[in-house]
């Protein structure tokens, strides 16, 4: 698709405009979007916010809003911040951490689109609050390594690792208990 303004470059920005309650869609190349003031290349969140609200409309709500099938999702409301799915779809931002659970069934396609196909976190875990998660991940890593070792028939090393895992699991149980008591 060619840009609406210059008719030359490929479209890279899809914008949804709400003017007097009227919804219009605009498709522009990056350069024209910046020149027309839709994209501010300096402020990333604004830029991506606009890109995203375009994405959402395409992604989670492909047909017109009058479709009865979509009624249900429109009425979804976050119990903590009262954001509705419709608002979320329009603004392209979450209102609180509970929104993630509230709208969870719609999030994978959005995340996949924004994050090159990814939907799950594999990075850092908060140290203090989520010790058990770190623990679990460490154990999982060791288990993966263990399988590799067994495959490669390195049984001695595998046995060592298995003991390590056992220790870790034991540690996890006792620290979880401590946590309960607190």
């Amino acid at each position: 698709m060619k840009c609406e303004v210059c008719q030359q470059r490929e479209v890279s920005v899809h914008l949804t405009n709400y003017l007097n309650g009227q919804k219009t869609e605009i498709h522009l190349c990056q350069q024209c979007a910046i020149e027309k003031g839709y994209l501010d290349a300096d402020e990333e969140s604004y830029t991506i916010h606009d890109l995203l609200s375009g994405f959402f409309n395409v992604q989670a709500n492909p047909t017109t809003k009058a479709e009865p099938d979509h009624r249900a999702e429109h009425q979804l409301t976050c119990p903590q911040c009262q954001m509705t799915y419709q608002q979320f779809n329009k603004i392209g931002k979450f209102g609180c951490s509970k929104c993630y659970q509230t709208f969870s069934s719609f999030l994978n396609p959005i995340f996949r689109r924004v994050h090159s196909g990814n939907t799950g976190h594999t990075g850092r875990i908060p140290k203090r609050k989520h010790v058990h998660l770190q623990h679990q991940r460490l154990i999982q890593n060791y288990r993966d390594q263990l399988q590799e070792l067994v495959k490669e028939e390195k049984f001695e090393e595998a046995a060592e690792l298995r003991d390590k895992i056992k220790d870790l699991e034991q540690e996890g149980k006792s620290s979880a208990k401590k946590g309960d008591e607190l």
Binding site: K93, H115, N118, G120, H121, T122, L133
Partner: peptide, 14 residues
């Protein structure tokens, strides 16, 4: 656990 650090914009999550 699944989504990581939760942020207001979906472009920052994880």
């Amino acid at each position: 656990q699944e989504r990581g650090y939760l942020t207001s914009c979906p472009t920052n999550v994880g």
